[in-house]
Nucleic acid binder design. Structure first.
Lengths: 187, 187
DNA sequence: GTCTATAAATCGATAGAC
DNA sequence: GTCTATCGATTTATAGAC
């Protein structure tokens, strides 16, 4: 475990609380109490509540962006690129389950960094869409509604934080999830 | 369009705002302003902010519960039961897109009705799980990880409110969605 | 049924002692 | 680096005039 300085400790504590109740319902007093100190003491390490949220969300969004770029650069076929995306979501979610809740549910409370976040998200979805459409034109992916395939997969991957907090083997999870998302449930 | 009394109008307005920012970030002044009146006037029609949230969430949860009971009672095979569940989510989401946001993201802010909501949700997931397991034992559904199939489908269905607000033909959406969820994306 | 006015509590954030 | 004390703004909700 990496050594946590006081600022990281605040962010880590806040992330846990944000998952339970959402950014708006968590007070600086809640965060402080959870750390055994007073709210005023938090301000020796962070400048504002908003700074905490920005830190949680932007670092995750940039991580997704970087990894998506690696997948795009690879010479995998479309199905294997999808499997890589699935593994990426499983990995990041397992490393920061609580943070994924803020990324999904509290991004609209970003202030200065809102537009930047939206641009990263838009680019990510565009890249995902391109992989699917490339797969369709190369006859690797079924030629049905590509938008529904995109948002169905994305919805499941974005919801991983809700039901995989105690997952042991993340490789097995990624494999099973790939099986279900790519082959469906029918025999 | 059914005639809306003042209380329904308040709930309708609040539901729209709750989707945008979440229950905790929306104030009674926001709701009133959006209706062109003052916050104090709201209290002539509703007793509290909490009552608005309870009304939104419990009515939706009970609708899902009732319809799931009908599906369970039917003599459809497992795949067709799954298709009925998919149609149910598409229908309810198209009728109350904004309310689905509260159902998904703000249920933890329920107070007196929280336990009741949790019991309905638990029962719904149990019924869904039973349909999948029955399909597996009858060789209608693939014998892979049933929990992953359950939560993958449920995640997609619960996220419908995010990307289907302007859907025209809900029958076609339900059919395409069934195709993707049941048959996957592979050719 | 809506208004103004305000109560009582709580919010994020700061000042200054230690 | 944490504390007490507090500011100023904002919250839900109520009282009472119209």
């Amino acid at each position: 475990m990496k050594q946590e300085n006081r600022k990281d400790e605040i962010i880590h504590t806040a992330t846990k609380l944000f998952k339970k109740k959402g950014y708006s319902a968590v007070t600086m007093r809640d965060i402080a109490k959870s750390m055994g100190i007073k709210a005023a003491s938090l301000y020796n390490h962070i400048n504002s509540k908003q700074e905490i949220l920005t830190n949680i969300i932007i670092s995750l969004a940039e991580e997704f962006t970087d990894e998506m770029n690696n997948i795009l650069k690879s010479d995998l076929n479309s199905i294997d690129k999808l499997k890589e995306i699935i593994s990426l979501h499983v990995k990041i979610t397992s490393e920061n389950t609580n943070g994924m809740a803020s990324l999904n549910n509290d991004w609209m409370h970003l202030e200065e960094k809102l537009d930047y976040y939206l641009s990263l998200r838009h680019k990510y979805e565009e890249d995902f869409r391109e992989i699917i459409n490339e797969g369709i034109s190369k006859k690797e992916i079924s030629n049905s509604n590509s938008e529904i395939m995109l948002f169905s997969m994305l919805s499941t991957l974005r919801s991983l934080y809700l039901w995989t907090p105690n997952q042991k083997d993340i490789n097995e999870l990624a494999n099973s999830l790939s099986d279900v998302l790519i082959n469906g449930v029918k025999i």
